[in-house]
């Protein structure tokens, strides 16, 4: 089920798309295990888990800060692979791991720089110098919770909102990307 495909005719024709081809795993460090978890993450992904609101790219995997000692691991869906189970196994004992692929709808606006409308749309300063590639913000839009990040390569903004709100959020986003 695609929120955009079902409710707009131009879902993929525009620079606003819904990302349906990823799995999202939420990991949270166990108490006292932050350092060893990071060590393991570096061994696994080749990068550190960001300790500030940042998103880092690691060989096709995007690691998004999601609160203190919490991250979203966003991976491309692959047939025959269970990303969640693999991560749960990898981080067993050092992190709590849950599959949240279905928790949020992720919309993407492909804009290298924020449009004027996007810039004024949220209580987050989207100015190019203030919200840089790789920056993350957990915030809300008209009372709808959202995690927004700018891709580390600067090509797009992703908005992850609770799935059950995503029709309203999609409506809002279509306006905001204009």
């Amino acid at each position: 089920m695609s929120e955009l495909a079902n409710h707009t005719k131009t879902a993929r024709a525009s620079d606003l798309i819904e990302r349906n081809d990823v799995t999202v795993t939420n990991i949270a460090a166990r108490r006292g295990a932050r350092a060893s978890l990071d060590e393991l993450a570096r061994a696994t992904f080749g990068v550190s888990l960001p300790s500030t609101p940042k998103a880092v790219e690691a060989g096709g995997t995007l690691i998004v800060w999601a609160g203190p000692d919490q991250w979203l691991i966003i991976q491309k869906e692959e047939t025959g692979r269970d990303h969640y189970s693999e991560l749960a196994k990898t981080f067993n004992g050092l992190a709590s791991v849950i599959d949240v692929t279905e928790s949020r709808t992720i919309f993407r606006i492909s804009q290298a720089r924020p449009s004027p409308v996007l810039s004024r749309s949220m209580g987050i300063d989207f100015h190019d110098a203030a919200f840089k590639p790789g920056d993350v913000a957990i915030t809300h839009v008209s009372h709808l919770g959202v995690i927004v990040w700018r891709l580390p390569d600067g090509t797009a903004y992703d908005f992850a909102c609770a799935r059950t709100y995503s029709r309203d959020f999609g409506d809002w986003l279509r306006k905001a990307k204009a």
Binding site: N26, A28, A29, R30, R31, G32, Q70, S96, I98, D99, V100, T101, E102, S103, R104, A162, R163, T164
Partner: peptide, 14 residues
């Protein structure tokens, strides 16, 4: 604060 507990809201997951 010292307990080893992690809390995830997952209302929308299921």
């Amino acid at each position: 604060p010292d307990l080893d507990v992690q809390i995830f809201p997952v209302s929308d997951q299921w």
